[in-house]
Design a binder for these strands. Structure first.
Lengths: 350, 350
DNA sequence: CTTTAGCACTCCTTTTCAATGAGTGCTAAC
DNA sequence: GTTAGCACTCATTGAAAAGGAGTGCTAAAG
């Protein structure tokens, strides 16, 4: 009769106890019993009363006990409720904001910023920080340059968004002179500078197909090269992770096998990346608790993410990975602030 | 009377037993007792006899027992002797060589090659692979290009050794036009292309100091910029590590604290880097066993390294880090081969 | 003189068992 | 509705006992 979504509204007191229980468990990492909770919650209730309430919470699937005579621990649903409605987010300490800001000034290029960000997140939260690299799809192509290297190789330099630079070495069918290459890049820059990469690519393909025969050799080569470079520029979807070792301090992850799987997942990247990609869709801070992520490896972990943007456009996400019992009230504002500061640093207008 | 170096030459039989013991311990990870050893060594001896010999070895500090009634385990000195004189290196499986070769073809730039190398080492040995980035000091500067970005920023592209590219964004005092920058790079290329970076830098400094007043504005700016870029190019001493998780499968490292320290040391980099730098000095394969490395963090680990070279000049080292009881007879030829193949891939002459 | 069998001894590991204690659920009284 | 009381469960702890792997020594055999 009652579905998952129909929460049989919790009494004030039940909420208070769930909150106290969750907070305590997050702090201590131990199942919390009725006596402790009665003391902890501030309500003047006896352990027995507390037990009654907790029994209800258990029936609702918000808490569970690891075994018969242990205290209670929040379930995933419990954490969810806690995070969604009970949590009082700590306002962020100004010194922390300052630390983030100092480390993410606009003096660096996009890649460097992103890497600092993950390091920062891990330092400040003492958890694992993770940041996806900026998406390139909507990036504007600022400039292309070709430089001849010896031996039928050409260096292509791509300037994207005035912030980010990418080079790739092209293997060509013959040697090109500097002058020749200059011509190509001039041509491409005239045609395409300032456009979005995706658009550029599409136009390249069309032009190549439609007018291949009529183009002179130069055009053709230029387009070919550009296509090669842009192909590389587009693919690189990846993320940066920092502070894995921070996770080792949590007992619940200390089972070496668990830890190993987790770390291997970080190496594997693909699964985590898929999850992070989902987060890009949302425009707000998101929290995955335990199994909610849908990835078994993160069963005992939570993920807090926020997207970062330039010009109101989501470029990627950053966040932290930690045990389900992470200090959400601290982590959430940090992730939030970092995302905003990173966005600011990436924004071209200073 | 007898110093460390004066090895009281081991009898044939003692050597054989030490070898068998070490091999067995490497394989099984358990202290090996006299009964097992008697069976294992192939010599037709009773456990009692073996015990006598082993007692001698223990007195010499080559083996030790974790506690009274356990078997014996090689000490660092034991491993050292084993590695230096007892070890019969397995000839490398051709398929492995092929795998390495395929993954390190010359199609990639130096940085990519180096990263693949560490991944490969970790895959093939199932340990942690580590490679230092190529030293730049003796690298020849092939080309410099400057491109204007918006907002008083200039992109400098450095081509080094025809293989490696480095860019950095310079913050300048005003905006420069493309033409201006072109002039600067032309000037620099004429003057310095093909020279070693260090030399270039020295000359830059001298010229700046001696003739500062007499140089026209252009020269001065060009030299300033070049100096900025080269400064960055020189510093980047670092290494790439892959396959940390492989180390988790070894019991002796499974103490979470040990593991954590180790992983943190990898993050810290500096200590490991110092050690690796020492290895660059040697022109041959080197092995540090346990405490020999002088770094406490690697107490329970060994490090096998080999330098890689271009034109007979050592550019960096690669190797693997694993528990002291790693399978040296397999690891050594792999490290050796990888170093040679990487050298070949980096060598400009194809 | 070397090798080996025998044996007592050490000490780690595993198992067993009881004691402890935290915490629960239920019932009955307030 | 709240609470005290109580029986019950079950992880944890520690001690004691059993088991076993391996040693060192001694004395006999080769």
């Amino acid at each position: 009769m009652s579905s998952q979504s129909e929460v049989p509204e919790l009494s004030e007191r039940a909420q208070c106890l769930l909150k106290a229980l969750t907070e305590r468990y997050i702090r201590e990492g131990q199942p919390v019993g009725s006596r402790t909770l009665a003391r902890d919650a501030g309500l003047k209730l006896s352990p027995a009363t507390v037990r009654n309430v907790i029994a209800d919470l258990e029936e609702m699937g918000l808490v569970s006990s690891p075994h018969t005579s242990a205290g209670r621990v929040p379930t995933v649903q419990g954490y969810r409720l806690f995070v969604d409605t009970l949590l009082s987010v700590k306002p962020l300490d100004e010194s922390v904001v300052e630390e983030i800001r100092v480390n993410l000034d606009a003096e660096h290029d996009a890649r460097e910023l992103v890497e600092s960000a993950s390091g920062l997140l891990s330092d400040v939260t003492r958890l694992a920080g993770v940041v996806t690299l900026p998406r390139r799809e909507h990036a504007a192509l600022e400039r292309v340059e070709f430089l001849p290297l010896s031996d039928r190789k050409v260096l292509a330099v791509l300037v994207i968004n005035d912030k980010e630079v990418q080079n790739s070495i092209l293997h060509t069918d013959r040697n090109y002179s500097a002058g020749e290459l200059q011509q190509y890049s001039n041509f491409l820059n005239e045609q395409f500078a300032g456009r979005e990469i995706q658009e550029v690519r599409e136009r390249l393909v069309t032009e190549l197909r439609e007018t291949r025969e009529h183009l002179d050799r130069m055009m053709r080569t230029a387009l070919d090269m550009a296509d090669q470079v842009l192909g590389e520029a587009e693919q690189g979807s990846d993320y940066v992770l920092a502070g894995q070792t921070n996770l080792m301090q949590f007992d619940e992850l200390c089972n070496v096998t668990t830890l190993r799987q987790l770390f291997e997942a970080f190496d594997e990247k693909r699964q985590i990346l898929k999850l992070l990609d989902q987060c890009v869709e949302s425009e707000h801070l998101q929290i995955f608790i335990g199994e909610e992520s849908g990835y078994q490896i993160l069963d005992e972990c939570s993920l807090v993410t926020a997207p970062y943007t330039v010009d109101g456009r989501v470029l990627g996400v950053l966040g932290v990975i930690g045990p389900t019992r992470m200090a959400y009230e601290r982590v959430i504002p940090i992730v939030d602030a970092t995302a905003r500061i990173l966005s600011a640093a990436l924004n071209p207008k200073e």
